[in-house]
Design a protein around this nucleic acid. Sequence first.
DNA 1: ACTATCCCCTGACGGC
DNA 2: TGCCGTCAGGGGATAG
Length: 264
Amino acid sequence: MPELPEVETIVRFLNPVLSGRKILDVEIFYPRVIHPLTVPEDLKRKIIGRKIQRVERAGKNIVLNLSDGNRVLFHLMMTGKLFWNPKGKRKHDRLCLFFSGGEKLIFNDIRQFGFCRALGSKEEISSPDFLQISLADFRKKTEKTERKVKTFLLDQKKASGIGNIYADEILWEASVDPRRPVKSLNVKEVKKIFLAARKILKLAIKKGGTSSRDYRKPDGSKGGYYEFRKAYQRTGEKCRRDGEFIKKITVGGRSTHFCPRHQK
DNA sequence: ACTATCCCCTGACGGC
DNA sequence: TGCCGTCAGGGGATAG
């Protein structure tokens, strides 16, 4: 649920707040929040005493760039949240970064799928996202795959940033049936999907993301895109384009909402 | 080298 | 009222 627009919204809040601040300490409340490839003591050793230079997004990851070139990465998965200077303690707090002046950043995650990871300056974090990739490169990735188009859009290794909500929204916008094999798409349809992805993701960023269940903006308010959505979780409602009822099916094990009339 | 399926976890919700 | 089964979904592991 935190997909590209939600993570971008969080990063735009955190960057001005965290840039230039020195990490004084790290407290790990729940060891499994640390990614299996990161040793907890290493995380502490690598980040305590460093300054945060800049906060960036890489795919769906939140990246804290440190003064010495190392990086701290958070992945929120489905229910992860970052709180800046929250009051008191909450259930599911997993980790805390402490800064001067008693300020702190809390990583909270109900379902324990999200993680924190320490990275050097060189490792690549994610494939180009849907706002970075060119049409030509996107087209190339569609060339040799047997998969259904929705499953393809969700594959972060091809192009990153899209999750279940925006996959449905993008295919509604592009008028493409989510079950279509990528192989069957013509050049025009691939371009339509590419342009729809850019359009929807940009609009969703403008609206501060989509709050359907767990996601909230860093100030605690809801993202505004939920009201704008055309397909996701609108099962049984009339399609905004042609009045047909939105149908819910399963594609690649994911709940999928689409209009059976105009999505061909 | 590709694709499909299972699994991790907690909370919300519906049926009885 | 309470118990139980199902679903939510990102992505890694594993099976095919």
